[in-house]
């Protein structure tokens, strides 16, 4: 039953449905039908409204205040207009470190995750069922590793004094002295990227694989007969068919990678002592809780949200445009 459903789910393209047709058309029944969706939505919407949307409004209100520990304790407000924003935009750290780190890292890790995940998916699609299951399970293991755990494992692998990488390089004679991988922003973010890609590609691979299995074999074979190489075939047939899958995968990865926090915060120097590696999330957290400047931290958070909302808007537009067609 379930496998049937899965196939149905991937194959059918219709969305929504018709409201149930009732024989008797009493106004009371109609009222029920009309309110039913709202009744069904109510618990979820109440929860989201109370715990995501209202807090989001409050973040914005905080960001217009000089909001410190005193204000939190007493509940007073202390509006200062857009002072926090002015300070953020005047801070050279934003332009030279924080924004480049945030955006640059998201671009690099999103493309690395998506490309690598897609390649793995294509590899898996070409494997027999036994090996596909083996690789699939291995991928699950990588995915299942909690971010905190994974981060500590990578920290240890790259540890300057006892880490595997340094030991190996030294034993191979490629390096004379231990190198501290966490002090240089590039190697720091390279490790974060490795961590993120390792943790993130399984989602891409599994999703794309499921999509790939739905692409019609005939079309690919026909293209092969026409002499199209693998790259041509990918861009001419597979990519267009899987476009919705890719758009979802890319946008979700973007959101997740923009918001990366724990993987940076837990790294040596990542919690603020190495200024070169700050990103928007960590910066906001450090300013809020270290400095008790919740207003300033909130303003940074608003900035991050706006950035993501712009990306979302683009996503929603492409998605709903396709749905309408």
């Amino acid at each position: 039953m379930s496998s049937l459903l899965e196939r149905e789910a991937t194959a059918t393209g219709t969305t929504g449905g018709r409201p149930p047709q009732r024989r008797r058309r009493q106004s009371r029944a109609q009222l029920i039908v009309r309110t039913r969706p709202w009744l069904l939505l109510a618990p979820a919407l109440i929860l989201l409204g109370g715990l995501l949307i209202w807090p989001l409004v409050r973040v914005f209100l905080f960001s217009l205040q000089d909001y410190g520990l005193r204000e939190i304790v007493t509940g007073e407000s202390n509006y200062i207009g857009f002072g926090n924003y002015a300070e953020i935009f005047a801070n050279p750290l934003l332009w030279t470190v924080v924004l480049p780190n945030t955006i640059g890292f998201a671009v690099v890790s999103v493309s690395a995750t998506v490309i690598f995940g897609t390649l793995v998916a294509m590899l898996m699609a070409s494997l027999g069922s036994v090996w596909r299951t083996i690789v699939g399970s291995a991928i699950m293991v990588a995915w299942a590793m909690p971010a905190v755990t994974g981060t500590y494992v990578w920290i240890w692998i790259f540890d300057a004094d006892q880490g595997l990488v340094n030991e190996t390089l030294k034993n191979l004679g490629l390096m004379n002295e231990s190198f501290n991988w966490f002090t240089n922003p590039f190697t720091f973010y390279a490790i974060v990227a490795l961590n993120i890609v390792h943790h993130g590609f399984p989602f891409v691979a599994i999703t794309v694989l499921a999509g790939l299995l739905g692409v019609s074999k005939e079309m690919i074979e026909a293209a092969e007969m026409d002499g199209a190489g693998p790259i041509r075939r990918f861009f001419a047939i597979i990519f267009p068919t899987l476009k919705p899958v890719f758009s979802v995968v890319i946008i979700l990865s973007t959101i997740w990678d923009f918001k990366v926090f724990a993987q940076i915060y837990l790294m040596p120097g990542g919690a603020g002592s190495n200024r070169e590696v700050l990103n928007l999330g960590v910066w906001s957290y450090v300013e809020s809780f270290g400095q008790n400047r919740y207003g300033f931290g909130a303003a940074i958070a608003v900035l991050l949200t706006v950035l993501l909302l712009v990306i979302t808007a683009i996503y929603v537009r492409t998605l709903f445009k396709e749905e309408k067609e």
């Binding site: 300057a160 501290n180 002090t183 190495n274």
Partner: peptide
């Protein structure tokens, strides 16, 4: 060079 690279963090 009395320290180690690791000590930086």
């Amino acid at each position: 060079d009395f320290s180690t690279a690791g000590a930086t963090t």
